[in-house]
Design a binder for these strands. Structure first.
Length: 592
RNA sequence: GGGGUCGUAGCUCAGUUGGUUAGAGCGCCAGCCUGUCACGCUGGAGGCCGCGGGUUCAAGUCCCGUCGACCUCGCCA
């Protein structure tokens, strides 16, 4: 070994011992020609090592040529630091190592940015020099946290008879859902594998095969546009169970969440987690993934808007739209007219809202440019409906149900954050259940699966399957944490006839279904147990536990928004020879 | 595909109504300093102002295009 101890390990009890440390030169301080201090760093910490020609340690020309990020090995004696010389900022600050022998293991070029201290460089540079960025303590900690979370998950499932089973990365393309990443086949000209969007079908087949408790830390791939919380490849904690009902999955995952939160962050999560229906959260928060660390619920005043004299409100309510609003407690003085008329109006505009109406509660009445369109009685009704008090700011969006949902949900999140309505370090995990089975796709003239085509319709809604499919609830559930979708799952169809009915509903005809999913339908005909499952977004969980709002901060080698890897240069062009082998011809050369 | 922010020294940024020699802090290099630990002091080097075109007597600054990073709407069963 090139070391006897790590750089975070030595304490005053080690005084007098001769030790060998290896690590990176974190900082270098020369004190005249005969005294040099180096803070030596590894992933465990930092230790001050001293080169001093005055006593029994040595200093030579090599020591004076050390530079930041050089990798060295030192052999020396652990000494207590003298009175007033210890450093309380370092865990090892009570001691230092007097160096007798120095070995330069590796020189470093001057780093393009500072490892610690200084402002963060732009992300492009950080990604190009990811090996340096990863040396920074914050990023380093995130990767360690990710490891701890992954191991806690394995521990939890292993103790409960779950089996970790791998499924293929090279699979079959299914045109539903997200765009696939495709891999051309050399031996089958013109044919392609697809990278999995999730192991969904494989895990269902594993249930048919009798592995009644499965989990996998599974890499998934989706070729869609990216966001701060989305990467083209990401990791799911994938789970499936046989002979269970919805409640069994929810309580199992309740257990997982509280186990993991306790284990990696020492946070107590009370279980069972609260459950809300889809309909409920959409009405109250406008969003199927509400941040419930704060209240500020949406209030509907469509009925009151219908009878007032304000043209916009009247028109919207009489044409089937909705008028809904938020009460920003004590917000009347906090939002200037400019902020309301320009900033917030443009903000809700991004979600399709054509305007933002606002009123202030002043002296028991509404104060607003539109207040004159409301009678005294109507004003009192609005105030009482909105639970308005002196100094409150009432914000309204009048539009379709969908637009009021989107605009008010976004507005609620923004105001909650900028008015500090919650503790940003806290956690609130909830279940959202009873999603619609399908949603109408006007462009294609058919229904689309809300979750996926294998999701069990709620038996209570069976009568609507043929008459009014939009009303059918799915036996599905999302786990929502602080406004992020942290997991999603459902009870699966285990009956090939029910599966066929759903395919019919989705206008996937039998031939097509047979072609795309025939292997699953066939499996379901050979004795499929009732089964259900869920997948948790590992990256998002790590992100939340790390207190971050960017998923790239918890992935060792993430990609940019255009799915490029700045470190390796992927994706890249390839040799013509490789293309010929794969029977591929490129029609448009890449831009240079 | 749409909207927005950004791109000036190795890094983070400033740069006025277009004006003659483009600055600061950190980092880097050299010298000094025997108890520093965000060490200190003195001196120095370092610029295709993302790229291409245009307007102008004159462009880091104005216009058009383009590339890249980030945020976001659509999209993500």
């Amino acid at each position: 070994m090139l070391r006897t101890h790590t750089c975070g390990e030595l304490r005053k009890d080690h005084a007098g011992q001769t030790v060998t440390l290896s690590g990176w030169v974190h900082s270098y301080r020369e004190q005249g020609r005969e005294l040099v201090f180096v803070d030596l760093r590894d992933r465990y910490g930092k230790t001050q090592v001293v080169f001093n020609s005055d006593d029994d340690s040595r200093i030579d020309s090599l020591a004076r040529r050390l530079r930041r990020e050089d990798v060295i090995r030192v052999i020396g004696e652990v000494r207590l630091r003298g009175e007033g010389m210890s450093n309380s900022k370092l865990a090892t600050g009570e001691i230092e190592v007097r160096v007798h022998q120095l070995v330069l293991l590796s020189r470093s070029k001057t780093p393009p940015f500072e490892i610690e201290g200084g402002e963060l460089p732009n992300e492009e540079l950080r990604l190009k020099y990811r090996f340096l960025d990863l040396r920074r303590p914050e990023l380093h900690r995130n990767i360690v946290l990710r490891h701890q979370l992954t191991q806690a998950v394995r521990e939890f499932f292993n103790e409960r008879s779950f089996l970790e089973i791998e499924t293929p990365i090279l699979g079959r393309s299914t045109p539903e859902g997200a765009r696939d990443y495709l891999v051309p086949s050399r031996v089958h000209p013109g044919a392609f594998y697809a990278l999995p969007q999730s192991p969904q079908i494989y895990k269902q087949i594993l249930m048919v095969a009798g592995f009644d408790r499965y989990y996998q830390i599974a890499r998934c791939f989706r070729d869609e546009d990216l966001r701060a919380d989305r990467q083209p490849e990401f990791t799911q904690i994938d789970v499936e169970m046989s002979f269970v009902e919805r409640n069994d999955i929810l309580s199992t995952i309740d257990g997982l969440v509280s186990f993991v939160m306790k284990k990696v962050r020492n946070i107590d999560v009370p279980t069972p987690l609260d459950r809300y229906t889809y309909r409920d959260v959409m009405e109250r928060f406008g969003n199927d993934k509400p941040d419930l660390r704060f209240g500020m619920e949406i209030t509907d005043i469509t009925d009151l808007a219908a009878i007032c004299e304000f043209g916009v409100f009247k028109a919207v309510s009489s044409s089937g739209g909705r008028v809904r609003g938020l009460n920003v407690k004590g917000g009347a003085e906090k939002y200037s007219r400019r902020l309301l008329d320009v900033d917030l109006k443009n903000f809700v505009g991004e979600y399709g809202a054509k305007g933002l109406a606002y009123m202030k509660v002043v002296a028991g009445k509404l104060e607003s440019t539109i207040a004159k369109f409301f009678t005294e009685g109507q004003q009192q009704s609005i105030i009482s409906r909105m639970q308005g008090e002196e100094g409150d700011l009432l914000l309204f969006v009048a539009d379709s149900w969908k637009v009021t949902c989107a605009a008010l949900a976004a507005l609620r999140n923004r105001i909650g954050k900028e008015q500090n309505l919650y503790d940003p370090t806290s956690f609130k995990c909830i279940w959202v259940v009873d999603f619609p089975l399908v949603t109408w796709n006007a462009d294609e003239g058919r229904y689309d699966a809300e979750h996926h085509p294998f999701c069990q319709p709620n038996p209570e809604d069976a009568e609507y399957l043929k008459t009014d499919p939009g009303k059918v609830r799915a036996d599905s559930y999302d786990l929502v944490v602080n406004g992020y979708e942290a997991a999603s799952g459902s009870v699966r169809i285990h009956d090939s006839e029910v599966q066929q009915m759903v395919f019919d509903l989705l206008k996937i005809n039998s031939e097509e279904a047979e072609l795309r999913f025939g292997f699953l339908l066939e499996a379901l005909r050979f004795g499929a147990p009732p089964h259900a499952g869920i997948a948790l977004g590992l990256d998002r969980w790590v992100m939340l536990l790390a207190g971050n709002d960017n998923i790239r901060e918890v992935i060792a080698f993430p990609k940019t928004q255009k799915a490029a890897d700045m470190l390796t240069g992927a994706p890249s062009t390839v040799d013509d020879r490789q293309l010929r082998d794969l029977h591929i011809e490129v029609s448009e050369p890449p831009k240079t």
